[in-house]
Computed example of a mutant assay.
Amino acid sequence: MLSKQKKNQGDKRNRLLVSVTVMGSAGPIRFVVHEEELVANVIDQVLKCYAREGRLPVLGSKPDNFVLYSPIAGTEALSPADTIGSFGVRNFMLCKKPGLDKAIEQDAAPKMTRKSSGSWKTWFNKSLNLKISSH
């Protein structure tokens, strides 16, 4: 019992219940962080919670691809080196970095190979030949 009391007395850092809304997701993610926690670490925690809960759309796991916004900061993204408690708010919004969507789409776009394009064409031609020959 004494060890628990000493442990609680030794940790005098304030904790915050933060709510982070992810763009495109159904609802906010809520969790407790220390107010001295860096914004970069909070982004990482949000991505881990989001993935663990199996939410959609799938975001990925690279914190460098995302920015965190605060209602007080307006349209300026929070610096990853700032502490989360320095803003005086508990509600945030997580978004992908601007211009990143196009790069991800280009990388994720399926590339048609000659073999795959030939196979569907062959199937299409065979299906047409079957219909024509049945006259």
Rank of each mutant, 00 (worst) to 15 (best):
S3H: 07
K4F: 07
K4P: 03
Q5T: 10
Q5H: 08
K6I: 10
Q9V: 07
K12H: 05
K12W: 05
R13H: 09
N14T: 11
N14W: 04
R15N: 05
R15F: 09
V20H: 04
T21M: 11
V22I: 13
V22T: 02
M23F: 12
G24A: 03
G24E: 03
A26K: 11
G27V: 05
P28C: 05
I29P: 02
I29V: 12
R30K: 14
H34W: 07
V39G: 00
N41T: 13
N41V: 11
I43M: 00
Q45Y: 04
V46G: 01
Y50L: 04
A51H: 13
A51F: 06
R52C: 06
R52H: 07
R52F: 10
G54M: 01
V58I: 13
L59A: 04
K62E: 02
K62Q: 05
N65R: 02
L68P: 00
P71I: 06
I72G: 03
A73P: 01
G74Y: 08
G74V: 07
G74A: 14
G74T: 04
T75K: 09
T75W: 04
T75E: 09
A77Y: 00
A77E: 00
L78A: 02
S79W: 02
P80I: 02
A81R: 14
D82C: 03
D82K: 02
T83D: 11
I84E: 00
G85D: 01
G85V: 01
S86H: 05
F87H: 02
F87K: 01
R90E: 11
N91S: 14
F92R: 00
F92H: 00
M93R: 10
L94F: 02
K96S: 08
K96T: 08
K97I: 01
P98S: 06
P98D: 06
G99I: 04
G99E: 02
L100I: 07
L100H: 07
D101F: 10
D101E: 15
K102W: 10
A103N: 08
I104V: 12
D107K: 14
D107S: 08
A108N: 13
A108D: 09
A109S: 10
K111M: 15
M112T: 10
T113N: 02
T113A: 01
R114I: 15
K115N: 08
S116K: 13
G118H: 11
G118C: 15
S119R: 13
W120G: 08
K121R: 15
T122D: 14
T122A: 14
W123V: 07
N125W: 09
K126D: 11
S127K: 12
N129C: 07
N129P: 03
K131M: 12
K131F: 10
I132K: 08
S134C: 05
